[in-house]
Nucleic acid binder design. Structure first.
Lengths: 213, 213
DNA sequence: GTCTATAGAGGGATAGAC
DNA sequence: GTCTATCCCTCTATAGAC
């Protein structure tokens, strides 16, 4: 059935994944430098031997995790934008456009741990040119997808954008990120954070999408 | 002249300050956890003995540094807002208001190292409730001052705000921070970063301050 | 008040058993 | 492929000299 190339064909992938999942939690909770390989292994139910059989080092694993998170986020947003475009449910007023933006940007794992993990990735990107390039590329890719959605909404609804698509998209991402961060810092849970983000967007989005037709 | 209470009256304060300055750099460059007390002392021109004579631990020093940075930022912004109000130079159009906002928010030390240090402080605040409270209080205080300035400008210029003062202020801070972070990550120098921030603000500010009478 | 020396703990990475 | 044992280095924090 499944291809049995080496010794534990799907076991290896499963181990890698369990280690990566555990690492995502620990990295988020205490940061890369304060994370011991042992603590990751413990949470995943392995010992250090398994870790070093799958990853060259703690840093290499962090890079892989960051890349994986970036891919997931971009793919998820792209899928939602495409889905939205396919549904043809893009008619909106400046007020109801907020819900569409929320539907696209409310990513899975964008809870307390997710925000912490993204913050951890971001600060390492600030210090590491290679990571910075990858981070900014993810940011641009997210921006392109949001810009596409914004453009679709404006076109379908006869609304005029107050700023160029790209700038609107970057602004939305920035408001989302900043508001989420502040909400998490204030101890809001997932619902409370969503609430604050919605309030922020409800203020900003109508200014960006002015009615015209 | 100066009060000679103990042994080295102003020498002690000078040592503390040199250690704090050195620590600010190292914390920014590599992060709290990757910082060794030794590296801070080396940069300040001392050895570990001097450090532990002045600070209880690395963490305690970080807290003190974070508090000091927060105080400076709040004080600087407040001083500029008050200065601006005193000058009576608050007449502005939606376009020229950008320069006033810039003049207040372009803080000293808001270069690459400053952004890194604030990011480091922020991520620890995300993980530490006590630091979070202090960080959010600084944020609110900055917001109050910006809101005051925004209100003054609108009143003096006969402009109408598109959103409540507080929300406008928070949005400006958020745009400032997000744009600066992205600019630093892209490797922009101080001038390049200012440029990007100005472009962002030039887009957003006119939407927030709509002309009326 | 600052320096040198050192104790003591922790963690990254490797080697070899199974 | 995973586990156990271990090497070795780094770092925090303290004790005592000056």
């Amino acid at each position: 059935m499944s291809d049995t190339t080496a010794t534990t064909p799907r076991g290896r992938e499963a181990t890698r994944q369990r280690l990566l999942d555990a690492a995502a939690e620990v990295f988020a909770e205490v940061g890369l430098d304060a994370t011991s390989v042992e603590s990751v292994c413990e949470r995943a139910g392995f010992t250090r031997g398994a870790f070093y059989s799958n990853f060259a080092s703690k840093e290499e694993m962090f890079l892989e995790l960051a890349a994986s998170v970036a891919r997931s986020r971009v793919a998820e947003v792209e899928a939602r934008v495409t889905e939205l475009a396919g549904e043809g449910t893009l008619e909106a007023t400046p007020a109801t456009a907020v819900a569409l933006v929320e539907r696209v940007l409310d990513l899975p794992g964008d809870d307390r741990l997710g925000v912490l993990l993204m913050s951890e990735i971001r600060i390492h990107a600030l210090r590491n040119p290679a990571m910075a390039e990858a981070f900014l590329e993810q940011d641009r890719e997210l921006g392109r997808n949001i810009a596409r959605m914004i453009g679709d909404i404006a076109r379908a609804s006869g609304l005029r954008l107050a700023l160029p698509q790209d700038q609107v998209a970057q602004l939305l991402l920035l408001v989302w990120e900043g508001t989420m961060t502040r909400a998490v810092m204030a101890g809001r849970d997932r619902l409370g954070a969503r609430d604050e983000v919605q309030k922020s967007l409800a203020g900003v989005v109508p200014l960006l999408i002015a009615g015209s037709d």
